[in-house]
Design a protein around this nucleic acid. Sequence first.
DNA 1: TATTGTTATACTCTATAACTATA
DNA 2: TATAGTTATAGAGTATAACAATA
Lengths: 162, 162
Amino acid sequence: MATRRSAADKTPAGQLTEARLHDLIGYQLAQAAIATTAVYNREVFGPDGLRPVEYTLLTLIAENPEVSSARLAKALAVTKPNITMWVDRLEARKLLQRRPSPSDKRAVLLKLTAAGSRMASSATRRLLKGERDAMAVLSAAERALLIELLHKVARSRPQGPS
Amino acid sequence: MATRRSAADKTPAGQLTEARLHDLIGYQLAQAAIATTAVYNREVFGPDGLRPVEYTLLTLIAENPEVSSARLAKALAVTKPNITMWVDRLEARKLLQRRPSPSDKRAVLLKLTAAGSRMASSATRRLLKGERDAMAVLSAAERALLIELLHKVARSRPQGPS
DNA sequence: TATTGTTATACTCTATAACTATA
DNA sequence: TATAGTTATAGAGTATAACAATA
């Protein structure tokens, strides 16, 4: 397959031709991420000093109370030491707490503090509004469709016991 | 707006609930990128040792002969010193050449060597096939639609003289 | 034997600041 | 004054290896 080519086949900035990259999902994801990162930096990193990983961790922990580091590492496709480092920082900021698991004495259960919970919620609210405003070219239906298609791509991720 | 929620509202790996992140384009882009990165690593980084930025630079230069570093920096939303470093590496591998611009004595024009051109082309071929195979859940029409929606998101990027 | 989480360490990538040469 | 490109340097983020404790 080949999608329609047009004179608009230029990079959003710099005005370079990118016809050969047009059909590459990986490249187009990276270009789109430049836009969402700008929204993130304005709405969350600026006000709260939260890194994208930190925001994501807070939100996943909020929704999955007492989740373990190991499962978070798998969900985000990063290593365990990396999670340890971010959890250290979030704990130092008193946004979450570590508690020993009663059932498995190796495991550490993670739980947000009230402050962490509040910060995660307000960040989500600002992000949703920020993205909606910045990407007003997308209708509600188009946004929903985009999300579903991105889900399909994400689910194609190799699972494996890695 | 709120898109349909379901029991399938879990991270692809780790099986964590992610309902609050469901509608965030930035998060879903990151999750989708995990899948495309896996394809990239298998199809290009493994065989050719080319980093994603390197592949992108080669391809943009192939399509925009004698492009300048400054325009590439804008297109990829990175700094000029960063481009200098990658161009250094690509030049050391004899995949591209630097030539002084005749019209503007400050500028350096970039041009692929035959080897660089060959590598970029074959990488693109492998990536397109690799993505198509890995993301077979997407029909051709869905892939085309996804690309168009990602384009719309990318075009929402703040332009500015930065 | 495998897994959880941590520490110590090294590497990769990107950015900022300062400089030159030219426009 | 502004821009193109480079150098030098520092910072952010991630990974690998090795370990202790537990399953």
